[in-house]
Design a protein around this nucleic acid. Structure first.
Lengths: 104, 104
DNA sequence: ATATTAGGCAGGCAAATACCTGCATGTCAA
DNA sequence: TTGACATGCAGGTATTTGCCTGCCTAATAT
């Protein structure tokens, strides 16, 4: 997994919206996704390309349509490698702050 | 929580590195953090400002030093609102794909 | 067969981003 | 008090990003 691509992909609200849309109904076409986006089709295409490069979305061609499927695996890996690590610090934050304010 | 600020903040590798550094040792000064970054001090400052605006880092002044503390709460909220939601789709992906390829 | 529809390709532009340098301020220590 | 050190402030620039328009191809429908 390319963590940088995943984080960059998630860094844009339009792309998170796309993932949301696919979460509501998986396998939507480009056109269907565009209907919910308020931007030109080509702009949406570029966002979907970024999501695909990050492996967050997979596509399948069916006739002249392109179907989009969400892939949650990279998100889980991001969580495992990044979020959990920082969560374990949670309880110690206030303690650290206090110690520092007291001049250690 | 401003989800957009958090995601944007996490979208840069330098800022993730900063969080990593603070995870190793909380409460580091700007100078200490810079020593591990290979960029000008002012660049690091800008990254830290973004992390602070996203509430991922809190700072305390002690004399002429500025101490930085990681705040894992927004990360947990991001996980709750975003990652878990998509994880629940995991098992259905292959099923959806199969269905679509068969022409539904 | 031809019109319509779904999507791809190429290029162009303005704003945001991630760097930088130079100078100013405030704190500590000799 | 004066020099060294930690950080803040103010631009300046090159690259990336997100959006667009215009045209092209391929598949379906009439």
């Amino acid at each position: 997994m390319d963590a940088d691509k995943v984080f960059k992909a998630l860094g844009d609200p339009t792309r998170r919206r796309l993932l949301d849309l696919l979460c509501e109904r998986n396998g939507q076409t480009l056109g269907e996704l565009c209907d919910n986006l308020d931007m030109a089709r080509q702009s949406a295409t570029q966002h979907l390309e970024i999501l695909e490069a990050a492996n967050l979305v997979s596509t399948v061609k069916r006739g002249r349509e392109k179907l989009h499927f969400i892939n949650p695996v990279p998100l889980h890996e991001v969580y495992e490698r990044w979020v959990r690590k920082f969560e374990s610090q949670r309880l110690s934050l206030l303690h650290d702050l206090k110690k520092e304010l007291e001049g250690e």
